[in-house]
Amino acid sequence: MIEITGLTKTYGSGNKTVNALNGVDLQINSGMFGLLGPNGAGKTTLMRILSGIVNPSGGSIRINGHDLTTEAGKYAVKSMLGYLPQELGMYTELTAEQFVDYMAILKGLDDSRKRSQRVAEVLEMVGLREVAKRKIKGFSGGMKRRVGIAQALVNDPKMLIVDEPTAGLDPEERIRFRNLLVNLAADRVVLLSTHIVEDIGQTCRDLAVLAKGKILFRGSPAEMLKATEGHVWTLTMSGLEKPNHDLTVVSMLHLAEGTQYRLVGANVNGYSSAQPTQPGLEDGYVWLMKSTGQVVMES
């Protein structure tokens, strides 16, 4: 279990101080947990802190009882961690098998027989068994991500942290990746950080929304949808007319009778033809950002 209390992270000093995290409180239990937020919200900083790479400026973090603000705690957490960073750098001259094997050694899997068995297992798990002996430099973006997840899993981690894992993947790869993460979450904590709302909606039973270093929402996707009910409409308008700026256009579709807008906002005063509609998670996210005063896309 992860317990985060009053977590702060500040970069720079004086006039150039940036508060990347500003008093984050979170409790995360086993299963799949989604961390959603716009670019620059502080997600990667939080992931790196939880991975023991970045030191917090203040607050406390305990992972399975280990205090992450101490060296001993960091060492213990890293020993049970699987981490897939947003910018995945690898030794591309190595084969997939060699790379995962090397990471296994760095994580302390010393017994070579058990290690090679485990390497084969995780490569099978991510569907790379057939190409295990090929150099990584010849792999597609999706295949590299899968090598990344294989190395994260090789030590059978109790906690798996994946930062923007589906960025740059094609739809098929994304679905495969999401399913893989859900399977893995059956017996461990999987922390998925992303700005792609759909990835969270399809996989997580629990989520938090982070913006400007603060937690704006903590709950289930269903709770987020409930909070959005009554704030989503469809409206068809003809000609060059557009909805007013109090409403955020989530999507638009050109039809024969005009343009159909999907709108999120406090109310649709002045648009009698607007039809209330069932919110999706993306609407929920937009409404949350809007209702908490965060900048959302131009209407």
Binding site: I53, M90, L106
Partner: peptide, 12 residues
């Protein structure tokens, strides 16, 4: 080191 962040996330 291209894999510096991954290396840092291990307990070495």
């Amino acid at each position: 080191d291209p894999a510096l962040e991954l290396r840092f996330a291990t307990p070495i």
